[in-house]
Design a protein around this nucleic acid. Structure first.
Lengths: 153, 153
DNA sequence: ACCCATATGTTATGATATAGCATTCAGCCG
DNA sequence: CGGCTGAATGCTATATCATAACATATGGGT
């Protein structure tokens, strides 16, 4: 569980991303890097069109495909994830992970933490395999109240 | 894991739904019932606008709010679920369940089965609670290859 | 210089979902 | 009865989310 990133954290995540891209034979172009930085800075779920607005630069406003392509790229490398239940995107907290993601989403404040599933996922994979189903990717989104909001209630 | 429903299964699910609504002090109106029947008949993920098209009746085509309201109602009672990663809806296989859903979704054929998590969910709930997070609802969507498609590959 | 692959820009449109207000209808109470 | 109320549905318009298809760069290899 990671909370707000420090400047050092942010820099580390980005350089980690550089390394991963190089490894994968892909390039973290300025645009992609910029989007990743925006996601990291946001430190929570970000809407595609909001990111788009932040990209606006010299030559007028950016267009939707721009941001969706960058996000697709980041997701392909596991550097970002989509929170399906929010139609929003987050930077991966742990550098990159492609196989499975677990998010705890606070209904009240919107805070969203990436979470380590531990063995729960293994169990699920095994149970599915017994039915002949081969899991490639698992997405878990749990909604409820975060510690802070629970206290406030 | 339930596969295609027999006519008897379908009837049972609907009467089960009637009972649940009565219990909850809600009414399964003709419209809501119709939507539930469509969902059950479809026996797989259904898009809102496709359901809408099937609703078309005497007085011209149905409008989006009609179907979304019916779906919201069914979901509130746990009679239907939304598959977030597909923007689609399914009837609940087991009559009704509100707390958690697990789906195995075949990337190839689109087949989607509701699955019993067993203890995996309990583990997740406990792990989250250790961080002070109170889970209200968990949604799990696992994608991969179903037995049939794996065999065909 | 040329070609090619990859990335980005741009226009248009498709797909998904909701806000806000009008209408209907059943139950109920004076 | 007559009118009130709340729940459900109908309807118009619009917001939000996402992609197809094609045009334009840009950089590396030969």
């Amino acid at each position: 569980m990671v909370h707000a990133h420090s400047a050092r954290d942010r820099a580390r995540l980005v350089s980690e991303a550089e390394r991963l891209c190089a490894e994968a034979g892909e390039t973290l172009t300025p645009l992609r890097r910029r989007v990743l930085e925006l996601l990291i800075a946001k430190d929570g779920p970000a809407k595609a069109y909001d990111l788009l607005a932040e990209l606006d630069g010299e030559s007028g406003p950016a267009k939707p495909p721009t941001i969706y392509r960058a996000l697709d790229f980041l997701m392909k490398l596991g550097l970002a994830h989509k929170i399906e239940s929010l139609n929003a995107f987050v930077a991966c907290d742990v550098g990159a992970c492609a196989r499975a993601t677990i998010f705890l989403i606070c209904d009240k404040c919107g805070r969203t933490d990436e979470f380590d599933a531990g063995h729960a996922l293994v169990d699920l994979g095994e149970a599915a395999r017994k039915d002949g189903f081969e899991i490639k990717h698992t997405m878990i989104e749990a909604k409820g109240l975060c510690a802070a909001c629970k206290q406030a209630a």
